[in-house]
């Protein structure tokens, strides 16, 4: 039933594709984190305009499906003055803009939980707003929301399967190519699912362990 030779021969190709998937996901996560920090601090800003912009960003990028966001970026990039984007760049942009919205919400919760006294003390000591954010608030917010952030990474890795539609040679795309050439659809997709699980399940368990660790240290 299971064609072992084909499976073994597919592994190198899938291995290369795995690197692309990880690269895209991790870059998307990193940039998304930067965007999320920015948006979260906008949401907590004093100026109402900043808050509204932050809120709208989250509304749009959490309301529109990632696939649609990806298509918009890929097809409409010229409109926004960008040259025709390569699939990789478009993919990373889409993933980071989308996860940025989710990370913003996660970080917002973490930032709100910090007692305002700390901000005031830092301010009185003469620290600038960005410095306060980066040196005082962000580390604490990240620490308290780490399990959610790990969970977001897992979701991002799963969502990255969609970048196959813009032709990027990620895991899903390569599996599709393999399957359409030898018609062993079920086998290739099963292996594909297996690879994703091999990445995601340990990550998820790590996130859960973090959560328990946090609960215990707070209790």
């Amino acid at each position: 039933m299971f064609d072992w030779p084909t499976f073994l021969f597919s592994l190198p190709l899938l291995g290369k594709a795995l690197l692309i998937t990880l690269q895209t996901s991790l870059l998307g996560n990193a940039i998304g984190f930067a965007i999320g920090t920015l948006i979260a601090s906008m949401q907590l800003a004093k100026m109402p305009l900043l808050r509204r912009i932050g809120g709208s960003y989250i509304f749009i990028f959490r309301g529109v499906p990632l696939l649609v966001q990806l298509l918009v970026i890929y097809y409409l990039a010229p409109m926004f003055g960008l040259p025709n984007l390569s699939p990789m760049v478009a993919a990373i942009m889409a993933l980071s803009l989308c996860s940025g919205a989710y990370i913003a919400e996660i970080l917002r919760g973490g930032l709100l939980a910090i007692p305002s006294g700390q901000r005031e003390a830092a301010h009185l000591l003469g620290m600038s707003r960005p410095a306060i954010l980066l040196r005082i608030e962000l580390p604490q917010a990240v620490q308290s929301t780490l399990p959610s952030l790990v969970n977001e990474l897992v979701l991002l890795i799963k969502s990255s399967a969609l970048v196959s539609v813009v032709g990027l040679a990620d895991l899903t795309r390569v599996a599709q190519n393999l399957a359409s050439s030898d018609y062993l659809f079920f086998q290739h997709y099963l292996v594909l699912a297996g690879i994703y699980c091999l990445i995601n399940i340990p990550l998820t368990m790590f996130g859960r362990r973090l959560e328990r660790h946090l609960e215990r240290s707070l209790a």
Partner: peptide, 15 residues
């Protein structure tokens, strides 16, 4: 939960 939705779709529809 560890598998992307797209992959499940492919498994069912094409597989």
């Amino acid at each position: 939960r560890g598998t992307p939705f797209l992959v499940i779709l492919f498994l069912v529809y094409y597989g």
